[in-house]
Write a protein that binds this DNA or RNA. Structure first.
Lengths: 141, 141
DNA sequence: TATGAAAAAGAGGCATT
DNA sequence: AATGCCTCTTTTTCATA
């Protein structure tokens, strides 16, 4: 259903999802029409969920990145799930297995902002915080 | 340096980074030329680091998502940083503060694949694994 | 900065192989 | 599936407000 050509297209879109079909085709030696057809198919099948952008958070004043793992208090799961969706600081969140139930990655202005964020979370569970020192590689979405 | 109009453009690109300047302009009532000018400026300044795509991992046979926190053995940091970049399973990796030094998010075929992946990591440190049960929201990149 | 105009490039639809 | 062709839209550049 998905062949190597599709993966080549994905690899190109991974590096820059705004490229034209013509440009993608140039890089993998395929006509723009064919590239388009394959991309549309991957979109329709749901393989490609969407296209997004990567921001440099520090250039908009968010100098602190961190993730928090939350051991949620009994009965507070639904409440915290709703709450988390409304926080603009949250960049990514998962339910997870293990001692903690929730992983939340955040971008924050400074340590005070982090403190305030944690203060909000302690109503829902017991947080363990890890600061992000640096990113490694670019990822393989 | 970055005003509300820029953030409006970012918000639109966040939902779909492949939209044309014309379409973005329509959504925020700005001419295509102006949208383009602002986007280029944000690209040049480094605020917009790039454009990427989101894949449905389960549709390409990766039914298991997890993250591993690694407590790296003394003197093995550099080796593991290089190693990790070469693993196609790795979707995201950070150096972090706390008991563990490294956070690695991965997409895997199945439990056997996870086991094999952990077997590779134990050469470099002590791993703690958390399976991802589900994602919450879409994130605010 | 924002806009409008004009040329060049690309998208989208369709018929052919 | 892939390609070429056609029409329409979008991008890109540039002059102007």
């Amino acid at each position: 259903m998905v062949d190597e050509i599709d993966f080549k297209i994905i690899d190109v879109l991974k590096t820059n999802s705004r490229l034209s079909y013509a440009e993608i085709g140039k890089q993998i030696s395929l006509s723009p029409s064919s590239v388009r057809e394959r991309v549309k198919k991957m979109e329709d099948s749901g393989l490609i969920k969407g296209y997004t952008l990567q921001l440099n958070q520090s250039l908009i004043g968010n100098n602190l990145e961190a993730f928090i793992m939350l051991k949620i208090f009994s009965g507070r799961l639904k409440a915290v799930l709703v709450e988390i969706e409304s926080y603009p600081e949250v960049k990514e969140a998962f339910r997870i297995t293990g001692q903690h139930n929730l992983y939340i990655r955040i971008a924050l202005k400074d340590q005070l902002h982090l403190q305030q964020f944690i203060d909000k979370l302690v109503n829902f569970g017991e947080p363990t915080t890890h600061l992000i020192l640096s990113r490694i590689g670019e990822g393989n979405y």
